[in-house]
Design a protein around this nucleic acid. Structure first.
Lengths: 339, 339
DNA sequence: ATGGGAAATGTTTACGCAAACATGTGGGCG
DNA sequence: CGCCCACATGTTTGCGTAAACATTTCCCAT
C-alpha cells in the first residue's frame, strides 16, 4: 500500500541523484539562475516532477536569514475594520512575496498582550504589524523584542513607532460639520469604548468642533461598538436631540432601531451619521450617512512601511494618516424645530 | 551610532560563549529540559537576557521537520462567515501551539486557486485548511501537492478530503418549516450565487421541504450575498409573497429595505428569515429571525481534524457537520391572507 | 594542434538547532 | 579505600539550502 506511510520529504539531494547531477545544479534550476545548459535543466525539472520536489522553506529561511513572512498581532477579526484591514494586509503582502501569520490575542489583558509579543519574538516573521486599539499597548511596547520591525495601526504610539491610521479626527469633524451645516443647533455623540483610541479620537474631534462653533456640548453616550449597545444608547437619547453622530455603523444601526421604537422618524425628526461605511450601511432604514474609511489603503500602507523598514533599517516614528470622506445618504436632513 | 546598523541575530553559540558553557547546554535551558543544574541554568538565562537571545524558528523547523504552522487558503475575509471562522481557527491553533498563515486568493479564478495551491506547497506549513466555497475547488484539488494534510470547509469535497461544515441543509429546513408552520401557503427563496456550495445546499433544502409538503415552489431569487443584491431581489418579489427565506442576513437586510419601500410591512404582510445570525441581526428593523451558525465550532473542528491528521497520518474523507438552530425574532409571524 | 578562457558543473561550507553519543565529576556503598 | 553509577556537561553530526570556491569541459583563436 504505497503512501500508507508518508515518505520523507524530497530534498534537493534526492532530485540530484535521480537526475545524475549535483545538488547545487538542482538549486540553480530551482532558483532560475543562469549557467545551466538547457538539456541539464530539462533533466532536473523532469526529476523534480517525478519526485514531487518542493523546496523546504525552513532550510531556505535558515540560509537567507529571512522568512518572507509578516506577523499580524490583533485581538479579533470580529470588528469590520480589523478583518478588512487584515485582508488588505494579506493581499498586499502576497503581492510583495510575503505571507502573513496571524497572532491572535484572546482577551485584551496586558498579560496576554505581553505573551503574544513574547511568542512573536520566536515566530518566523521578519516584521510585525500590531493592530491593537486599546491603551494596553502602552505598557506592552516595552516587551517588544528589540530589533523587531514594527508598524502599528490605530494607536497613539506615534512617538515610538511608525503608525498608520485612518484620519479619525478629520472624519469625525466632517460628520459633525455636516450636521451643523444642516442647521442643527448641536450634535449628540455616541462614542465607542473609552479604552479605544479611535473612539477617543472621534469623540475628541466631535467635542472640538462643537466648542469651536460655540455650541453646547451634550452629555456623551457610550457603547461597545455593537449594535445592541447602540440600541441602548439610542434609547437613552433625550427627546430634544435632533442630530446624533454615532462612532460606528453597527451602533448606528442600533440607534436607528431605538429611534424607530420611540416613534422618532429618521431623518425627519433626528439625523444620524455613522462611521466606517460598512457595506450594509446603504441598506439600513434609512440608508446611513456615514464616514467612509479606506481600510484597504491602511493595510497597503502598513505593508509598505514595514517592508521599507525591513529593507532599509528602522524607520522614524510618526503617523501616516489615510484620509476619510463623508458619504451622505438618507439618514440626515435639515433641522426643523421640534413642535 | 549604535543600532544604526542592525547587528546579527544572537545565536545559541553567542549565549554559550558569554555564559561559558556549551551551546548544547543553552539548548537544554531554552527547551526547559532537565539535567541542568540550577546555577548553570541561571547563568545561561542571564546571558540570554543580556544578549536578547531569541530562538531561530527556521533552524528549529529544519531540525524537527515541522513548522508548527497551519495554512489557511481563502478568497477573502469580507464575508462574515469567513472572518469568524478564521478567527476561531487562529484561536484554536494558538491554543494548540500552532500559528496560522493566511494565503489569500485574490479573484476566484481557477488560475489563482491553482497558484495559491502551488505557492502553498512551498510555504512553511504542516497542513492546510481550505475555505473556498465555490466550485473552482473541484478542478484545483488535483494541484494539491501530495502528502499535504488538508481539511476543507464548506464544499462538497467530502469524497476526497475531510470536510467540516455547518449543517446548511438542516438550517434551511428549519427555516422553511418554521414559516410553513406559521401557516404560510409557501415560501419564496432568495439564494446566494450559484457557484456557492452553501447557497446551493440551502436552496436545495428549501426546495425539498416545499416539495415534501406538497407546496408550490416559487421562482427562486438570486443575490451575491450583499445587502444591495438582497435589496434588488426584494424589489423583484411578487405581491403575493407572504414569506421569504433569504440565504444570508446581509441580503435579508436588503430585502427588509425593499419591502419597506414597497410599503409591505414585516412581519405583518411578509415574514422574513435570514441565515447566519450575524451580531447585527437582532438590531434590524424588525429584529431578524434567522438560522444561527456556530462559526467558532467550525473553526475548532477544522483545527482538531487537521492536527489529528498531522499526528496520525492521512484521514479518511468525510463530512463533519456542525448543527445549526433557528433563532426566532420579530421578522416572522403567522399567515394572514392578503386583502 | 594547442593554449586560453568562458561556461557548465561539482565540492565544500555554514546557517542555528538539538538528538545522539562521549566525557567528566562527584557521591554512595561495599 | 576504591569502584561504579548517576548525573551534569561537552562534542559531533545532520537537517536542506545556496554562496563561495574548485574543477571540468569544450570551443575558438592562433
Amino acid at each position: 500500500m504505497p503512501g500508507g506511510r508518508r515518505k520523507q520529504r524530497v530534498s534537493m539531494a534526492d532530485v540530484a541523484k535521480l537526475a545524475g547531477v549535483s545538488s547545487q545544479t538542482v538549486s540553480r534550476v530551482a532558483n532560475g539562475q543562469s549557467g545551466v545548459v538547457e538539456s541539464t535543466r530539462e533533466l532536473v525539472l523532469a526529476a523534480m516532477r517525478e519526485l514531487g520536489y518542493r523546496p523546504n522553506s525552513a532550510a531556505r529561511s535558515l540560509r537567507y536569514g529571512r522568512f518572507n513572512t509578516l506577523g499580524v498581532i490583533l485581538f479579533g477579526l470580529s470588528t469590520t475594520g480589523n478583518s478588512r484591514t487584515v485582508e488588505a494586509i494579506a493581499t498586499q503582502a502576497a503581492a510583495e512575496g510575503y505571507a502573513i501569520t496571524l497572532i491572535p490575542v484572546g482577551v485584551p489583558t496586558q498579560d496576554n498582550v505581553l505573551g503574544a509579543f513574547t511568542r512573536m519574538g520566536e515566530l518566523a516573521v521578519d516584521g510585525v504589524i500590531v493592530i491593537i486599539e486599546v491603551h494596553l499597548l502602552d505598557a506592552a511596547t516595552v516587551a517588544l523584542p528589540p530589533g523587531v520591525h514594527v508598524v502599528v495601526v490605530d494607536s497613539d504610539a506615534g512617538d515610538r513607532y511608525p503608525v498608520v491610521d485612518t484620519d479619525q479626527a478629520d472624519g469625525a469633524r466632517q460628520a459633525v460639520r455636516h450636521l451643523l451645516g444642516l442647521g442643527h443647533p448641536t450634535v449628540w455623540h455616541i462614542a465607542g469604548p473609552a479604552e479605544s483610541f479611535s473612539a477617543e479620537r472621534r469623540a475628541q474631534a466631535w467635542r472640538t468642533v462643537l466648542e469651536e462653533a460655540g455650541r453646547p456640548v451634550p452629555a456623551i453616550g457610550r457603547g461597545d461598538w455593537s449594535a445592541e449597545s447602540g440600541y441602548r444608547a439610542g434609547l437613552a437619547l433625550p427627546d430634544e436631540c435632533s442630530a446624533v453622530f454615532v462612532a460606528n455603523d453597527q451602533m448606528a444601526l442600533g440607534v436607528l432601531r431605538a429611534l424607530h421604537e420611540r416613534g422618532r422618524r429618521v431623518p425627519a425628526d433626528v439625523s444620524v451619521v455613522g462611521f466606517d461605511d460598512i457595506a450594509e450601511a446603504s441598506s439600513f432604514l434609512p440608508p446611513l450617512t456615514t464616514v467612509h474609511q479606506d481600510f484597504a489603503e491602511v493595510g497597503r500602507r502598513c505593508v509598505q512601511a514595514l517592508l521599507a523598514q525591513i529593507g532599509a533599517g528602522p524607520a522614524a516614528p510618526g503617523t501616516d494618516l489615510v484620509p476619510t470622506h463623508l458619504v451622505v445618504r438618507g439618514s440626515t436632513t435639515g433641522y426643523r424645530s421640534v413642535g
